[in-house]
Design a protein around this nucleic acid. Structure first.
Lengths: 334, 334
DNA sequence: CATTCCTGTGGAACCGGTTCCTTTCCGTGG
DNA sequence: CCACGGAAAGGAACCGGTTCCACAGGAATG
């Protein structure tokens, strides 16, 4: 492995000049620049990243803190972040967060102050006041995706609006008995965005004077979760709702499959609407609210870069639009 | 941000002693060690990772090269890798590979020689001879998951056996007209493991003297992919097969849903078997071949660590077992 | 013609750790 | 009593870059 000293020697210049020639900063004659470039090429020289980081104070790495990527939304988001970072020549250090706070502690106590990265994208976590304080002291810009924290940039969907629009769509179709699948009585078990979706559902009902009939079924935000919850919800033939709002498309699709198994026709006997526009939504002809997690990933990187390049620029908050996509899982109430 | 010099000054010792006290290497009196530890605690000292890397030549980072995590298998695998690396105090640098080889080139030309990580886990890619050569020259251990390359450790499922067992199961049930969903006529479009699954299917048929009736339907390894292929395959009422092997569970589930839509009863009129034991397999009562991608992730890290700690140790190849899980999507031929 | 400015380059310091080498001190064995 | 060995600690070199500063030479300006 060759070092910049080797390159300099071969090109017959000093280390300083070689460094300038390669980075393009400072005065170097065209002739010298070329000689250095050739020497570097011949030696297949690549700068040692740790040395560069130590000297410059920048690591060209972004830390991404994220829940398990087993949900479509997160995997798409990660793909978006990856694409954008790659285009900007940044590395991506991935940190998973699980239930146990052990991970989280170590992240904030050791990893962050280790100055391993220039900035952070935190997905779906709301840092505590103490954690925010640490972040702030570490002087590293943070962009959160999902929850919004004072003093940092954020990109989020308006989860309240999304669920409200979904619910309103059903109300407009004449439904009055609309259940929500995917809530949780345990607030710790409900992600920030999912909690807001519950809220949006309740808002829409209240606006239509239907708050009294609100029904929230617990379910994990997965297809089996939606399936199980729907089996229970729809089991009672007379008491069952005429429409369902799923906390996300996975849940909605699970409910849809449950309905089919129970012999309940969708959409004639039961309307279902989801949120996300999951890649499977089209196959199931699911009416849903479209989000673009991949684009949110791009946006998160854009915001982070803004702060990396211009540390004094104001924090921004991007709220991405969501739109209703009507397919064939919803129909007017008979 | 405090440095080790600050800690040393506060504890009244030299940098060298402070370093030894904190790392636990070399002679330090118990008394001094404690003073240094206290000083470090008071200053909330955390070593600068770039400085440590530069000095030691180790980055405590593992590069993970992986296809998009939108398939369940890969997201589980990633989760497994993450868990194990975290437990070992290693960072995880994630690199996505997409169709375009641009990513791949940059990876091998710039990222690898930049000595950003101590070792690599490559998932589902078969490095070219030239790439292997580079890897070898960079002296960084490689563990591949999936394809096996000469001179590196690998963890893989026996994909051939998996598909063979699935197909044999159907043959034992009396099926003779068994289609495979999820092949591809374009070999570039078929991952290494998926190609082996096609092979296993053909092997089983051949062993039963059924090679003449082999039918391979093109489909992407996703639920919609399986759905679309199955709709076409099952559309012809008289020519349709009595059993289907899916290249993976997603495809198999897609086929299952297609069958239901077409009014074909599973398993009485059509048996379906998948490969993976996807988290949704149970909900669909899908008979399948169980893999444990998460454990494969753990295993990959174990193999890598082996090489990091003992560079001269022989390369290992782990082939994880797969077992048939019979649920209710398969039945004897009527 | 003297001053100033700008370009091009090299020497040396620096980033923040780790580690080699040396010195001092003390206890032990011959 | 002296030689020796091991514990404890410090000084300095080193890892491989970047950048500050000094300096030389030529062009432009007054």
């Amino acid at each position: 492995m060759s070092t910049i000293a080797d390159v300099a020697a071969r090109a017959g210049v000093s280390k300083a000049t070689a460094s300038r020639a390669l980075s393009g900063r400072g005065y170097v004659s065209e002739d010298t620049r070329k000689r250095v470039a050739d020497a570097a090429g011949e030696l297949a020289y690549v700068a040692h990243s740790s040395a560069t980081s130590l000297a410059t104070g920048r690591t060209q790495t972004v830390g991404v803190i994220m829940p398990p990527v087993d949900r479509w939304f997160f995997s798409e988001l990660l793909a978006g972040i990856q694409e954008s970072l790659f285009a900007l020549d940044y590395e991506l250090a991935l940190y998973g967060i699980r239930e146990g706070s052990e991970t989280r502690e170590r992240l904030f106590d050791v990893v962050l102050p280790g100055r391993r990265f220039d900035g952070i994208i935190a997905v779906g976590i709301q840092p505590s006041a103490q954690e925010l304080e640490r972040l702030h002291r570490s002087e590293r810009p943070l962009v959160s995706v999902g929850p919004y924290s004072e003093g940092s940039s954020a990109v989020s969907i308006d989860d309240i609006a999304a669920a409200r629009i979904a619910t309103e769509h059903l109300i407009e179709l004449g439904h009055t008995d609309i259940a929500f699948v995917g809530g949780s009585t345990d607030p710790d078990h409900l992600s920030f965005g999912d909690a807001q979706r519950v809220e949006g559902y309740l808002e829409a009902l209240a606006a239509a004077g239907l708050e009294a009939v609100a029904r929230i079924a617990d379910a994990r935000p997965t297809m089996p979760g939606g399936y199980a919850a729907a089996v229970e919800l729809l089991g009672d033939r007379r008491g069952r709702p005429t429409a369902i709002v799923g906390v996300c498309d996975e849940t909605a699709i699970g409910a849809m499959i449950a309905a089919r198994r129970l012999g309940i026709a969708v959409p004639t006997e039961l309307s279902i609407v989801g949120v996300d526009d999951h890649e499977h939504a089209e196959m199931f002809a699911l009416t849903t609210i479209k989000q673009s997690p991949r684009e949110q990933g791009h946006e998160a990187v854009r915001l982070l870069r803004q702060q990396l390049d211009h540390p004094e620029s104001p924090r921004e908050r991007t709220v991405t639009a969501s739109s209703l996509v009507v397919r064939s899982s919803t129909a007017g109430r008979r």
